[in-house]
Design a protein around this nucleic acid. Structure first.
Lengths: 295, 295
DNA sequence: TTGAGACATAAGTTTTTGATATTTTGATTG
DNA sequence: CAATCAAAATATCAAAAACTTATGTCTCAA
């Protein structure tokens, strides 16, 4: 048995365009430019010697001959897709998968999600947290919000904001005024530092803070070190000591009413930036999401 | 709706290899080298992260996972092929389509076809005659036997034999000995020349023959000119005159017993050569046929 | 009449594909 | 049991296909 088939890529382009009745939408679905689709369809038409679409400036329609071919093609593509489905997974254009840190997801993204779903009710957001850098060349993740130095101008990455670290301690139940506290009054407390998993970034530390503030007495304090913010938060909430927390966290619902700021400087941190996976850069919904993020 | 599919060409390679359980046979079917198929399948395996075939040196078998994918893929390809079938035609590997001149087909090929079908009973030969050069870049014709100057060494064309033109006239019923005849005895006959459709080739002519033979009297003869051999043969058989016929025709069943040679030189003609269409060069049966032709 | 949206066309670049040559693997044979 | 043979894998490189950017055309709507 031998089949005689036109180029398969051209067939795929035709199928998408015929189904969506739009070159541009087909292009988006296949993650290429409309030009590419136009080319492929022209190639197919030339090869078959027939017109598949009627072009009328603004939109396209299938010709009679195109209509005759289309059903079998769609069915065939469905069958192929079905064969690979369980092995290869599905993609849903309405689902956006984002990779970021636990902290960004919990304290920045999460509180704003209500607004997002209000604006884009049909979208589904898939949040995937991990401290390490996730590979964006695969098809698993559409974009990542990463924390680190400001990227080069031409990287195409969108910078969201710069992080700052604020010295805080649990608000004393006794004196619940919203004032600040002097570090000198906290000699019974410990200084809580968190070690970061990513050793290439410099974590904020009380040592640095004392240096920058010009205050004395760093060495008189007891210390507490943690590997993760999870435990550090707990220690902070229990009133064990003072911590340098990112403004994002300090301002969050969970913490804003519980903490009181310690007098002295805030430490500058790195920036959050959005990195879009190459394969997802054409997805309209991904672009919308990035606009919303940075907007 | 969006489908997530591996590269379609890789899918096609997989399908052919899985169906034929052979990389090389799949390669032949798709008109590429086994290397290409091997590449494509490897690409697919890497992408899916699973092994599709079990290799054991001499032959391949589907793995369990390959077996699960295969049916849907075959079905899908069938469906695609079906969609384009009526528009795009079918190819049968057992059918060889040859383009050549009417004369070659009738007087050289036809008498030998019995032998051919005896050797290759399963093949179907499609003979397509035309005096003009048929385009071999299309998929209509597998090979052409063409008449003309000897091709360049590196053209890849196979030369069958050189043609010669022999001066003949109808054997007289009266004197049926197999001797030759002197042109001087034929003053009552006419000289039959045929004009060729392809003006770029020099047709044999009585004028040339007289020049080469050194004989006198060319201008004393009456002449007959035809556009096609069909009419010239008729005139020859009716005994109207003498013609310069190719050895192929003179030796054919139809003519060998009816003609008698006229004394004098034979004229050198061009050569028959086999030109194989690029798309057909890998077809095993086409190669077999060419081997048989050049024999 | 002008501007925006959708597609076509042209030219150049990148990616993918496939060919040649060579090596590896396992079956077959003397 | 080595020698041989066929099929497939691999490496390197060239050719072809696909894609992008830039530009042009056409239609519809304001």
């Amino acid at each position: 048995m031998t089949r005689r088939l036109p180029p398969l890529n051209a067939i795929r382009a035709f199928e998408a365009a015929a189904r969506l009745l739009s070159i541009s939408n087909a292009a988006e679905e296949l993650s290429v430019t409309p030009t590419a689709i136009s080319h492929q369809i022209k190639q197919l038409e030339d090869l078959l010697g027939i017109k598949l679409f009627e072009r009328s400036g603004r939109n396209i329609t299938l010709t009679r001959q195109g209509e005759r071919i289309f059903p079998g093609v769609t069915q065939g593509m469905d069958s192929l897709a079905g064969a690979f489905e369980e092995t290869y997974g599905k993609v849903d254009l309405n689902t956006i998968t984002i990779s970021t840190t636990r902290e960004f997801a919990r304290y920045w993204l999460q509180p704003r999600l209500g607004d997002f779903y209000e604006q884009f009710p049909s979208l589904v957001l898939n949040v995937f947290t991990s401290e390490s850098c996730v590979d964006l060349s695969g098809r698993e993740v559409d974009l990542a919000v990463r924390y680190g130095p400001v990227p080069a101008e031409d990287s195409g990455d969108v910078v969201l904001f710069q992080e700052h670290y604020i010295p805080v301690i649990r608000k004393s139940p006794v004196d619940s005024k919203d004032k600040t506290v002097d570090i000198a009054d906290l000699e019974t407390k410990r200084l809580i530092d968190v070690r970061w998993e990513n050793a290439t970034l410099a974590a904020p530390s009380w040592k640095t803070w004392f240096e920058q503030s010009g205050k004395e007495g760093f060495h008189h304090f007891k210390r507490m070190n943690f590997d993760s913010y999870h435990l550090a938060f707990d220690a902070l909430k229990r009133g064990y000591g003072a911590a340098l927390l990112s403004q994002t966290i300090v301002n969050s619902d969970e913490f804003s009413s519980e903490l009181v700021r310690i007098e002295g400087p805030q430490l500058s941190g790195y920036s959050y930036r959005v990195v879009v996976a190459p394969a997802s850069q054409r997805k309209k919904n991904v672009r919308l999401f990035v606009d919303w993020l940075s907007g």
